[in-house]
Design a protein around this nucleic acid. Structure first.
Lengths: 215, 215
DNA sequence: ACAAAAGCTGACCAAAGTGTCAACTTTCAA
DNA sequence: TTGAAAGTTGACACTTTGGTCAGCTTTTGT
């Protein structure tokens, strides 16, 4: 292992321990914050769920808030991922179809994160920084502009892009955020992959008919 | 006041005090449970918000859960109110338009209730009884049948009614449940009546184009 | 007027919660 | 091999919280 590293301090080997434990804590935290909200979550519970003693959790995070905001920051990174499909080169039909699909897939595979974020918003977005919210606004603006471009080019009907985004965001989020209600409404014991697929096609078809010039 | 009552015990005069205090507690409870969730809410805070000493709150309710479930029960009563517009005699266009409008109006005028309900669902619907959920399922079924009737009569396109309801429910709820995000997405300092009106028209127009035979 | 019912509340617990710490063990570069 | 940094943890201190209670005041039908 010749020219290894000799970095500033001592260790390195992937920083295995630290990384692994922080990951465990974050993972458990997502689950529990999602279920209980910020105030309702007890650190002891996070500790138990991550298999670490409470004092060890405090070795890595100095407070409950620090765990929570670490998670929120991580979440926001994936916020705009699905939006990449809304790009000017694409045709609206294709773009919305892909967006809806990606959004539903993300929300299905990351239920806890989705719920945690929803919970944070419902509880007043107390831990979203001004910067976070500015970021949301900016990303929205960019994509609103794309839609306005499509409208100007006659590629879709003049639908208010901001309200349209809200419809899409709301409709896709619903399936994981409010799963107990979705389950009852669909009369299924639980939601499976094909329920999400049927959701995707219903939303996509309805929205596309709703915003495209009649074919 | 001749044949008054002489009920089993003593008082009656509108039961003023009891009624008034319970109302105050419930009202404060809705606000705070909505913001903090069940676990995050402290009774002391409800007491303070309702202007009563904590011990007095316990004079009327014997536990936190009792306050909470009282509120939930009250909420469910208004659950299906907007759905009355989805009735077989109506034309789909009219029905959906009225439904969307009513739903948005309710959610706007009862933000705290809306959020509390959303919060309860996100946190796993722990306090919805089997009966409550059965009720939801039943009401949905009734209205799904109406839509299926419309589809069979060729009055609208064959859209999956259950997913359609979810789209409507989700899109309308969003504005109050996730107001901080809606505010950012719409670039408004706060949502006002005309934002809800614009939401209503965008949703209505898009959905109607999405489910009706092309006019 | 008056006694019984209803309403009120400060003071008090026991339990649960957050966060700290000193002493111990493990890891690792030299 | 070694010693310093990193990691671990039981026990503890302190605060908050849900819930109780005994004794007080107010209301009310008669």
């Amino acid at each position: 292992m010749g020219a290894n590293h000799m970095a500033r301090a001592v260790r390195d080997p992937e920083e295995r321990i630290r990384e692994r434990n922080m990951r465990l804590i974050i993972k458990a935290g997502i689950e529990i914050f999602a279920r209980k909200g910020f105030d309702g979550t007890r650190i002891a519970e996070i500790a138990e769920a991550s298999g670490l003693p409470k004092a060890n959790v405090y070795y890595y995070f100095s407070s409950k808030e620090e765990i929570y905001t670490a998670i929120i920051a991580h979440l926001l990174a994936s916020w705009d991922d699905a939006l990449k499909y809304i790009s000017p080169e694409r045709e609206p039909a294709e773009a919305f179809k892909l967006y809806i699909k990606a959004k539903l897939e993300y929300t299905r595979k990351n239920m806890a994160e989705s719920r945690l974020f929803a919970s944070e918003i419902i509880q007043g977005a107390r831990f979203l920084s001004r910067k976070d919210r500015e970021h949301i606004r900016q990303v929205t603006d960019t994509h609103v502009a794309v839609i306005e471009g499509w409208i100007a080019a006659g590629k879709m009907l003049p639908v208010d892009p901001r309200h349209l985004f809200i419809m899409l965001w709301a409709s896709t989020q619903f399936y994981s955020d409010f799963e107990p209600v979705a389950v009852d409404a669909l009369k299924k014991p639980r939601l499976k992959a094909d329920d999400y697929e049927r959701a995707a096609s219903t939303i996509t078809e309805t929205i596309l008919r709703g915003i495209l010039r009649h074919p």
